[in-house]
Amino acid sequence: MKIKVCGFTQAQNARDAAMLGIDAIGLVFYEKSPRHVDIDQALEIVQALPPFINRVGLFVNADSHFIDEVLCEVPLDTLQFHGDETPEQCAQYAMPFIKALRMNKKTNLVQMAQDYHQASGLLLDAFSDKAYGGTGEQFDWSLASVKTLDIDLPIILAGGINTENVADAIAQVNPYAVDTSSGVESASGVKDIAKIKQFISNIR
């Protein structure tokens, strides 16, 4: 089970978390998020990481020129699109990308997997009409069970995942990876290392 922790804002905090054995860290390039980082902060965080950590940049309906600017300055491995980006907009950077979907009963996951077939994976988050993710809210996991859906793309489960519910979430959905942010925080953008350690332990 792959583990991604998203929304770091401090270099040492990200390094401490990465040293525990997580697979990926997320950097949020979205100004409306309380976990937003600018290019200088992101570069400082990336430079502090140990080897073999996937560095994911999260964008929400961002201008392509801004994404190009970030890519010129920050060595990212994967892009994560959390807005209303089309498949063509996601694929234009010739980089691995994840498309986030805000899940509710109207979401046709099979169709979305076909539409975004160029993606490296689909990240499933809770639907909110107030925010593009990062709400800490959980959605109905029965909508995302890999056991009952014919989907080729890896599924990354997000949305309210924390130390208490991660084992149950994995049992219900059987995802490729889990992604947490507020579920392992002591404050917005500050990760609680003890919680991350417990999170990993509860998964493995």
Rank of each mutant, 00 (worst) to 15 (best):
A11K: 09
K191R: 09
S186A: 07
T9H: 10
F52K: 13
A194W: 13
V28T: 03
A171M: 13
V110W: 12
L101P: 02
N13G: 06
V184Y: 09
K99H: 05
V173K: 07
H65I: 13
S33M: 00
L153D: 08
K2G: 01
P175D: 01
L143E: 10
G121V: 03
A131K: 14
M1D: 12
V166Q: 14
A94M: 09
N202T: 10
W141G: 08
A167E: 12
I22K: 08
A177L: 01
K106V: 13
D68T: 15
L58V: 14
A194I: 13
L153P: 14
D63S: 09
Q172A: 13
D38V: 02
Q92K: 11
I196S: 04
N174Q: 13
K32G: 07
F66W: 10
Q138S: 15
L76S: 06
V178S: 13
S182I: 07
F66L: 15
F139S: 08
D152L: 15
F59M: 00
K106W: 04
R35E: 04
L122K: 05
R102V: 00
L143R: 12
E73N: 11
A24P: 12
D68S: 15
C90Q: 05
A131T: 14
Q12D: 12
T78R: 07
V46M: 02
G136E: 04
I193N: 03
K4Y: 01
E185Q: 06
I156G: 03
G133Y: 00
D40K: 14
F8S: 02
K2M: 07
G134H: 00
L123P: 14
K106P: 04
A62W: 02
G189Q: 03
V110C: 10
Q172S: 11
G160P: 06
R15C: 10
K197A: 14
V173A: 09
A14I: 01
N174G: 02
K99A: 08
P75H: 06
I203K: 10
N174T: 06
V5P: 04
V184R: 10
Q89T: 02
D63Q: 04
G183N: 11
N202G: 08
N162V: 04
E88M: 03
D125S: 02
N104G: 05
A119Y: 09
D84P: 06
A62P: 02
L20D: 04
A169P: 11
S64E: 15
G160M: 02
N202H: 14
F199M: 05
G83V: 08
V184T: 08
S142L: 10
V37Y: 07
Q114T: 13
R35M: 04
L123F: 05
Q198T: 13
C90D: 05
I3N: 07
K4W: 01
E69C: 02
C6R: 01
L157D: 09
I151Q: 06
N165S: 08
N61I: 09
P75D: 02
F66V: 14
E73P: 00
L27C: 02
K195M: 12
N104Y: 01
I53R: 06
H82Y: 05
I39V: 14
T86H: 04
G21Q: 03
I25C: 03
P51A: 15
M103A: 07
R15W: 06
F97Y: 15
D115A: 15
A126V: 02
